[in-house]
Design a protein around this nucleic acid. Structure first.
Length: 546
RNA sequence: GCUCCCGUGGUGAAACGGAUAUCACAUCAGUCUUCGGAACUGACGUUCCAGGUUCGAAUCCUGGCGGGAGCACCA
């Protein structure tokens, strides 16, 4: 931001230190100013002066454009208070410009984000919901930073899991319900019954080489049903993919890559492996002893296919934590066989959703699928939506349900596990997605009423209140979240903003007929736009009435 | 056993090495419903243990304890 940059330059100039070493922060407490720095304490020893003397030197060097007041506080903090018109300018922009908060830090960068990645013939589970929420938000964060973004979905339509389902389906044309049960039955049989295991392995082979017409038919039919069903979920979640990749395509591709690099991959116990030990990792199988590609090999094929489809500058993949180590080995191998693509890859791994009692387990029935969670939430939201002002209660319920679930995922650092508490998840109050949506709808209602009463929004000379200063921080909150690829940094900001707005709303009467009403309307409109844009980045919709 | 991640009020989380550690849920006490109560105000209560680095440590380093994930033909 312009003001922040000027402050940083001035500090570097006065103290004669490199700008990168100047740390400027937002004090947690607005009483301590809009920006603050501890440089005086940090450099005291190096410059041979005590912190307060250094801070004093700086304060007396003269004014900085856009800053009204510079104060020394505590042991030597230097606090900057922005000028009223600097804040007012931000409010004006927030209130009048659609793209308020956007930046061009990633301008002309091409970024492909791969996420969600559910597998046909299996349930859409909570991990997919997490990947979807995080991936979509990262895609939008990148777009909001000026990048050109493509969304990719990579689905496992071949492999043992599919063979298990097909085997249990006994080659018929399955319904959706039959499919979801088939995988579980097949997986159980595979473990418990040696004969079933042999049969399933055979089916697996036949799916790869497409040699059995009966299996082909059942497979094609079931695959389509699964994929079509996923589309319904993507629509509700608000994701529109540009590219779909399938393991049935990346597999052969990967096999080719592995075969043509015998200097990288070695044979061990009949399997083709990559010895990750040379990179401080562990050995992993790339081709099974039967010659079939594993996940690792498919990943190599995928990278090549992505590059062909749309050559991006950065390739982001969002997957669960448990895959982090596999990914490292794949990346190490990739560095040897296709180094130019390997350098573009960035893996984001997220935690898992766990029950308070421990890990979810399908064996004990302690499992909640992503789909059932979504459905339960929609039911709960519908109950609440009964007496809402929205025109379509069902549509609103869907929006609120998705907000609740996405926010719960995006409000905490993405690497950490989420403890799933049913009651908390279904709660639509407090620190929740619907709370943010509500604050937005409320602000919209006030703006609408002001329009009816012909009370214009005037941001000029708006008072630099705490709420106004918080709004001013929005573009920086976006930049911060984007640079860390951490949506929760933005969630935290939005919650603070919504909370400050609700609190302010309870204290003042906005449309009170006074001359100040124009300013209050401007502030309200600025809050509405900020929440709208911020929630968009999180992938959460903002109904105007709820 | 080895590798990686994590440990913050009763519960779930936040805090780019900074100021009195923040927020929500729960509990208790209020607002009273004049612009939308999916709201607001207040009370209660927290950095696993022991060292170290630093002007300053929840954060960095070492050791311990506790939890999770991964470690060869699944994805």
């Amino acid at each position: 931001m312009a003001v922040a940059q000027r402050i940083r330059e001035e500090i570097a100039r006065v103290f004669g230190v490199p700008q990168e070493e100047v740390k400027l922060e937002h004090p947690a407490d607005l009483k301590n100013g809009d920006y603050s720095t501890g440089v005086a304490m940090q450099f005291a020893k190096r410059l041979g002066k005590n912190p307060l003397a250094l801070a004093d030197i700086f304060v007396n060097t003269g004014p900085i454009d856009g800053v009204e007041k510079i104060e020394i506080a505590g042991p030597g903090f230097i606090n900057f208070y922005l000028a009223a018109n600097t804040i007012a300018d931000s409010i004006k922009t927030a209130q009048s410009e659609d793209m308020w908060g956007a930046n061009e830090n990633l301008k002309s960068k091409k970024i492909m984000v791969e996420y969600t990645d559910p597998n046909p013939f299996k349930e859409f589970h909570i991990g997919h919901l997490m990947s979807n929420a995080i991936g979509e938000s990262i895609a939008r964060l990148s777009q909001f930073s000026g990048a050109e973004v493509k969304r990719a979905n990579y689905q496992g339509d071949v492999g043992p899991h599919v063979a298990k389902a097909i085997w249990a389906l006994a080659m018929k044309k399955p319904s959706l319900l039959e499919i979801s049960m088939a995988y579980a039955n097949g997986a159980k049989a595979y473990e418990e019954n040696p004969q079933a295991k042999a049969e399933i392995d055979a089916v697996n082979q036949k799916i790869y080489d497409k040699s059995d017409p009966e299996i082909n038919e059942s497979y094609t039919y079931g695959r389509n049903i699964s994929l079509q069903h996923f589309e319904i979920l993507y629509r509700i979640l608000g994701t529109k993919f540009d590219y779909y990749f399938f393991e049935s395509e990346t597999g052969p591709r990967g096999v080719e890559i592995v075969r043509t690099h015998p200097e990288v991959f070695t044979i061990s116990e009949g399997a083709t492996v990559f010895q990750g030990e040379k990179a401080g990792l562990h050995t992993r199988v790339f081709l099974t002893s039967k010659g079939l590609p594993t996940y690792e090999t498919k990943e190599l094929g995928l990278a090549e296919m992505k590059e062909e489809k749309w050559s991006a500058d950065v390739l982001i993949s969002v997957t669960a934590h448990e895959q982090a180590d596999y990914f490292k080995v794949v990346l190490a191998a990739m560095k040897e066989v296709m180094p130019e693509i390997a350098t573009k890859i960035r893996h984001i791994s997220h935690g898992m959703m766990r029950l308070p009692t421990g890990k979810m387990s399908s064996r004990t029935g302690d499992v909640i699928t992503g789909e059932s969670l979504l459905k339960d939430l929609i039911v709960a939201a519908e109950e609440r939506a009964k007496d809402s002002r929205a025109t379509s209660h069902h549509e609103l319920a869907e929006q609120v349900a998705v907000a609740a679930i996405k926010y719960q995922i995006l409000k905490q650092a993405s690497g950490k596990d989420i403890i799933f508490d049913r009651e908390r998840a279904l709660s639509l109050e407090g620190d929740s997605g619907p709370y943010l949506q509500y604050a937005h709808a409320r602000a919209c209602a006030v703006v609408e009423k002001a329009r009816e009463q012909h009370i214009e929004a005037k941001a000029e000379s708006v008072e630099p209140s705490e709420l106004a200063r918080l709004i001013h921080r929005f573009p920086e909150a976006v930049e911060y979240a984007a640079s860390e690829l951490e949506p929760h940094l933005l969630s935290n900001y939005l919650l603070a903003l919504a909370s400050a707005f609700n609190s302010w709303y309870a204290q003042v009467h906005i449309l009170d007929g006074s001359t100040d009403a124009h300013h209050k309307v401007a502030l309200t409109a600025a809050v509405a736009r900020t929440l709208k844009n911020g929630l968009w980045v999180l992938g959460i919709s903002t109904p105007e009435k709820m």
